[in-house]
Nucleic acid binder design. Structure first.
Lengths: 186, 186
DNA sequence: CAAAACGTTTTACAAATGATAAATAATCAT
DNA sequence: ATGATTATTTATCATTTGTAAAACGTTTTG
């Protein structure tokens, strides 16, 4: 799917705005496990998974924690850096061979001033992301690990391709615990 | 603090826009424990705590769960209803005697078309809320209940006034468990 | 004030999850 | 292919958290 078809499904922008947007979008291919952006600097990019699958991760007490998964036609954003200007402690990694679009956020925020349409489009996009994070809170706050795992399985078949250890930390549990849950379900 | 001082600290709008905004804001006082908006209908209101303290809650398996606390000069929004148009399963309750402003969302979204300024202001506001929810995920995903409690205590002294049972479910644990944690810390 | 209602703590026991190590299984690189 | 590496499962035991019930405290209200 073309990103513009996706964007148009959210909010249609003028042809001029569309061209302006095209100019700040880059396409890149990543190998399995390749780092898309490393931990450390201030995040100035909005990513969009065209094909494949990626994750946001960080380290807590030396352990690799997956905070977020993104599949086809989904945004990846480290909001706590992008919207605050603070350096990020989170990295982005392609889990599988992937095609990922990058939108330079500083250029985008400039375009907001010229094209009200573009600001609205991204406002709506980020509102959706916001809603997703709220749902994830509901999920983490009072569902058992087993329930959370069942929920995740429902979202996409792509989950099958994701290493167990990533899924475990995403669910907020250890690999061993997830392995037990799986054994139970069988 | 006046809400307009607060809003101006995020993004300054024109005098005209300000007047238009004033017209869709209502001020209400609530008694301790009073319901601000009940569970059920579609959420069409953005709330702002001027004084006091409120919470978002819902029921899971018959248990009252606190999803969110809002203190002075904070927004309260049930994003998953406001931004999707779906009915909400969450209610809002004043925890203490409170003054809470209500902004009608349908009117606000209309104003977005007339005043680019207002759309930008609220875009920035909701970006902040989005960042807060992301931080809460970090918090819930891999911090122990003890750590989460310590974090919460740091945020505001107002926590002292909040019933333990609300705090416990907010942290994702039972009252009994929180009571134990408190006994430990002493 | 006293009774009732509500909130918090404690206790005892059960269930879920963590930590560590070892055993298998699957994947990768030469 | 085969050895090395990485991923997953299993086992054992410790810790955390849940559940239920009772005890204790505090607040509300007639």
């Amino acid at each position: 799917m073309d990103i513009f078809s996706f964007l148009e499904s959210i909010h249609k922008v003028s042809d001029q705005a569309r061209v302006a947007l095209q100019n700040i979008i880059n396409v890149n291919s990543y190998k399995k496990n390749e780092i898309v952006q490393d931990i450390g600097s201030r995040c100035k990019t909005i990513y969009f998974v065209k094909d494949g699958c990626a994750r946001i991760f960080y380290y807590k007490d030396g352990n690799d924690i997956t905070e977020h998964f993104a599949f086809e036609n989904e945004l990846i954003v480290r909001a706590e850096s992008l919207f605050t200007g603070k350096p990020t402690s989170k990295g982005i990694q392609a889990i599988d061979k992937s095609t990922i679009l990058s939108i330079d956020s500083e250029s985008l925020f400039q375009l907001y001033n010229q094209y009200h349409d573009i600001e609205r489009l991204f406002r709506l996009l980020f509102e959706k992301e916001y809603v997703n994070t709220v749902k994830r809170i509901e999920n983490l706050q009072f569902m058992s690990a087993k329930e959370r795992y069942a929920e995740l399985l429902k979202t996409t078949d792509y989950v099958q391709k994701i290493p167990l250890k990533y899924i475990a930390t995403y669910l907020g549990i250890t690999q061993v615990s997830l392995s037990r849950i799986r054994a139970d379900v069988k």
